[in-house]
Design a protein around this nucleic acid. Structure first.
Lengths: 259, 259
DNA sequence: TATACATTACTGGTCTGGCCAGTAATCCGA
DNA sequence: TCGGATTACTGGCCAGACCAGTAATGTATA
């Protein structure tokens, strides 16, 4: 006979669990409204502070959105990769998880995403990839004549993110999609914190042209259905992207994944 | 000139952010104690319900542990992969993320983990892998003479998890480690929910022996430093593991990752 | 009749104050 | 010196209240 360990749950946890279970089991869908707090305190037989604590947890974890004064009650939200980003960022900043580990993890994910994207036969998704790659090439052309470097740099980052996001979407795996998105955002968050890495204009332009070319060749591999080649190309591209931003020791950790 | 979008934050979010920032920036370490709630309401100039809501959120996300009556205040906890598991499980149960996607994601992660483990030169970690593989072989021998199937099945699952966990640890990437752990636990959670998949004794024994052999060969690849071979072996093993548990369509999604 | 506007009846956000069970340090007696 | 009662807290939970904000309702205007 095996026994379950006693897990003493707080009152608020019971409410959170029941609502999350309702979402899991399909009784609550995104867009649905929860009863008001005063109604909930009746159905759960607890006081308002208790149901408020539960709602706060659901709010903080992105399960629900609350707006003061809305008579329709709290709204059930669809899942967002942002829910994964929070713990990921926290993990990075804690107990010795370094930025290079994040990059290694990213390299690993994007490689597999490209492989799956090439193997999949989702034409619409592949069209999206091509479009995003074209956007990058466009920007590279515009950058050659532009004057302000700041706006270009910002748009560069956004377009690059969207390009990779399109590949992840084409992989057909939502977990890969969400995790990659979270890692991506975590890296930009970190990059934004250590601001001042403003690249000067000529270096930025060269970098941008290089990324645009890389995106084009990777897109060709994916369109051709060359799974192994797509993975290799994707990892090589990202490796090259970080090549002069990391120390030799950090690069060494990435090398096993390349090729 | 670029502007930041106004983010209206609730009072509790300010407190949560400040405490999380304290952890991020190294002013608070795991094991440290937070001031009591009455103290916090002074320092933040808010009422007790508000600081309680903040503490609930930190408690629910695994940042902090609170115990009624403890005069030392809430304890700052170290990061746990469990913090990632919650949103992962939620994502799985929502918006059409299927179990086969989880398995595909797992295949993808374990493959890269094995590759990195083979490329790394952490002798102690590799010793751990060998030890866990030996445990599996031991259990396979014991299973041949055992009578009760339930206990064996349970231990089988645990040992297999520990074997893979050792590989992830040897990869040297904590993100890979935590994510893999979370996916692993999510899958066992789901398997536990749809209980009744109790395998009958002879099938279980065969399955166990197969897994033990697979673990041994994978261990050899990793010990030999054969990165590409380790990845191939790992993906093949997991693919074989799920081969007769999934439909053909589901298996088809896994095949690009194998080999 | 259709539209703009004030009204209203709620909502969630926050606060004050209080009671209770639980914990750990302290104190005290053996 | 050591073990058990004491004590002074802690967090968990509740009751009641006020306020700002929202959306639907009703109302007056075009």
């Amino acid at each position: 006979m095996r026994f379950e360990p006693v897990k003493k749950m707080n009152s608020y946890e019971i409410i959170v669990d029941q609502i999350e279970a309702g979402i899991r089991e399909g009784r609550l869908h995104p867009g649905d409204r929860l009863p008001g707090e005063r109604k909930l305190m009746e159905t759960f037989s607890v006081s308002r502070p208790t149901v408020r604590e539960a709602m706060r947890v659901l709010h903080a974890t992105g399960v629900v959105n609350t707006r003061a004064g809305d008579p329709r009650g709290a709204e059930v939200l669809p899942f967002t990769p942002q829910a994964l980003e929070r713990p990921l960022v926290r993990m990075t900043h804690q107990q010795g998880t370094t930025r290079s580990e994040l990059i290694q993890f990213r390299l690993l994910l994007e490689g597999q995403a490209s492989l799956l994207a090439a193997a999949a036969d989702d034409d619409e998704a592949k069209r999206q990839i091509t479009a995003r790659a074209a956007d990058l090439t466009d920007l590279a052309h515009r950058a050659a004549t532009a004057e302000t470097t700041a706006d270009i740099a910002e748009e560069f980052g956004e377009l690059l993110s969207k390009f990779h996001s399109a590949i992840r979407a084409a992989s057909g795996n939502q977990l890969l999609q969400a995790t990659g998105q979270a890692v991506d955002e975590a890296l930009t968050t970190i990059a934004r914190q250590r601001l001042g890495e403003e690249t000067e204009a000529p270096a930025l332009e060269a970098r941008l042209r290089c990324s645009a070319e890389d995106a084009t060749t990777l897109t060709e591999r994916i369109q051709a259905g060359d799974a192994a080649g797509a993975r290799r190309t994707a990892t090589e591209n990202i490796y090259r992207f970080y090549k002069d931003r990391l120390t030799d020791l950090e690069l060494q950790a990435l090398s096993p994944l390349v090729g």
